[in-house]
Amino acid sequence: MSEIKLTINGVTRTASAEPRTSLLDFIREHLGLTATHMGCEHGVCGACSVMLDGVPVRSCLMFAVQADGHDVMTAEGLRDADGAPGVIMDSFIEAHGMQCGYCTPGMMVATHALLSQSPDPTDDEIREAIGGNLCRCTGYAQIIEAIRIAAQRLRDAT
């Protein structure tokens, strides 16, 4: 077993896991944060997306030990301090940018990654940002609309 210490959603956490444990399983099973979802475990679907040191990554494609000492943000980190849905989350609700909700956390992490770099994205940039996240329910239209709303709201807030 290896001891892993990381910052997750602004909180420092320590837990032990086998070296072969994926970051995805570590987040879900060892840290008890279940918004990050398992879809394909081979890096294609994006349901397990998290931010690692400010960059979106697939948590299924790296080991938890590789995240030791790093800063991780999961979809839970997009909630407001009081636990209510944050701006990106609320924009997904407003546009009904989901159906079953399974890919949604990964989509919102991708949205966060995009809007932190590009506050006023074009539709092409939005498509590029979620191009690695598969959704089987929506056909993406309402997700794109949700991201446009989130971008507008975040711009209005600054």
Binding site: R28, T34, A35, H37, M38, T74, A75, E76, L78, R79, G83, A84, P85, M89, D90, F92, I93, E94, H96, G97, M98, C100, G101, Y102, T104, P105, M108
Partner: peptide, 19 residues
């Protein structure tokens, strides 16, 4: 109208079998 289920799903508070 907003969809009731979206609130918990968007907040990462769904209750999927793996959870």
């Amino acid at each position: 109208r907003r969809v009731t289920e979206d609130k918990r799903l968007a907040a990462g508070r769904g209750n999927f079998v793996q959870d």
